[in-house]
């Protein structure tokens, strides 16, 4: 359940930004979560609610924007799509794949007041 840690980290960022950007309440948080990121979105949503209770983000909405994985197949010398780690290249069956995107965990933007 490192999703709890991730949410504590998100909350800390929200609190820091509240000072910098002078807002009192967070209404919505948009996260960009890659398909290959080491995180479970449903666990993240659950943890977020627990962690933000009684804070400036109490009752706020968490919007998770999924980002598709992008990988490079060494054999095909081409960009290929997989849904999860340990999957082969859909064209040639090789596992010689390099993840080029879709493993990020980022806070994109906030709706605040």
């Amino acid at each position: 359940m490192h999703e709890m840690s991730l949410c504590e980290s998100i909350l800390r960022t929200l609190e820091e930004q509240a000072l910098a950007q002078r807002y009192k309440r967070v209404k919505t948080v948009w996260l960009e979560i890659g398909q290959l990121a080491c995180v479970e979105p449903s666990a993240l949503a659950f943890s977020y609610e627990v962690v933000t209770r009684g804070t400036l983000a109490d009752g706020s909405r968490l919007e998770i924007v999924p980002v598709a994985a992008s990988t490079w197949c060494m054999q095909c010398s081409a960009e290929v799509r997989i849904d999860a780690l340990a999957q082969p290249c859909p064209h040639c069956g090789s596992y010689q794949l390099q993840v080029t995107g879709g493993d990020q965990m980022r806070i994109k933007e906030l709706e605040v007041e």
């Binding site: 991730l6 980290s9 998100i10 800390r12 960022t13 930004q17 950007q21 807002y23 209404k27 996260l31 990020q104 965990m105 980022r106 806070i107 994109k108 933007e109 906030l110 709706e111 605040v112 007041e113």
Partner: peptide, 16 residues
């Protein structure tokens, strides 16, 4: 939303 505004922050969750 009268008081609400959007703030773009673009930070890695694990940035700290």
């Amino acid at each position: 939303l009268s008081q609400a505004r959007m703030v773009q922050i673009e930070q890695d969750i694990l940035g700290k």
